[in-house]
């Protein structure tokens, strides 16, 4: 899977929209009809290292905890597409530069987990349908995909032995509609990355292919 090239931190791309071409040319053999989900059902994931970064400016927003609720139905011979669903995500204890605290809200739920490739107990895939917005004192911003009306696709991994679903920090997330004191720290159109490791409970979910 090709990784999105990230912009270097020394350059500041202000105001220009960068469209990242995300080509998830998954090995076709692993894409459809070969996935098995066991120990599935509903799950909750918790992360304590969620970080949202404006990769143009380097500005970071960190949350002390995030919680996601979702499900993946058991089955065999499943398509990788929509192998799981994220129905809720919340964040708490989020702060940014100057210690400004933020509220972060997930939009456009449910989001969808898609399995793309599998190797040695680890599934690589995507989280699609992602949109969110942040609000804090002096600052408002939305996050979406290649355009402000398109949802974003984030790269993820799931590890069967640790039961951790990781947001890898790559994808086509961008900031839009930035207002207030945030301007300059985050700009409309700036590419952004979201990273976090969510430990699932119950710790039973296993995804394999074939």
């Amino acid at each position: 899977m090709r990784k999105l090239s990230t912009l270097t931190r020394t350059g500041l791309v202000a105001g220009s929209a960068v469209v990242a071409a995300v080509a998830f040319a998954a090995a076709p053999a692993n894409a459809a009809g070969t996935w098995t989900v066991s120990g599935g059902g509903s799950f909750t994931g918790k992360s304590t290292n969620s970080t949202l970064t404006d990769t143009s400016t380097g500005t970071q927003l960190k949350c002390t905890s995030s919680s996601a609720g979702g499900s993946a139905a058991n089955g065999t011979g499943l398509s990788g597409t929509n192998i799981g669903t994220i129905s809720s995500v919340t964040w708490s204890g989020c702060s940014g530069p100057l210690g400004i605290t933020f509220n972060v809200t997930a939009d456009g739920l449910p989001w969808h987990l898609n399995a793309v490739s599998y190797s040695g107990g680890v599934t690589t895939g995507t989280l699609t349908g992602v949109k969110a917005h942040i609000g804090g004192f002096g600052c408002t911003a939305s996050f979406a995909g290649a355009s402000s009306t398109a949802t974003a696709t984030l790269d993820v991994k799931y590890n069967n032995s640790t039961h951790v679903l990781s947001l890898l920090g790559t994808g086509n997330l961008h900031a839009y509609g930035v207002s207030g004191t945030c301007l300059g720290l985050i700009n409309s159109g700036d590419p952004a990355s979201y990273k976090g490791d969510y430990t699932l409970t119950p710790a039973t979910l296993s995804i394999t292919s074939p």
Binding site: R9, T57, G58, T59, P97, L98, T181, L183, G184, L185
Partner: peptide, 19 residues
């Protein structure tokens, strides 16, 4: 009138907001 000017220097862990 908040945030007329900012200075970012994350390599030095520095952020400044002027109003």
């Amino acid at each position: 009138n908040s945030g007329q000017r900012k200075v970012l220097d994350y390599s030095k862990q520095y952020v400044e907001v002027d109003s």
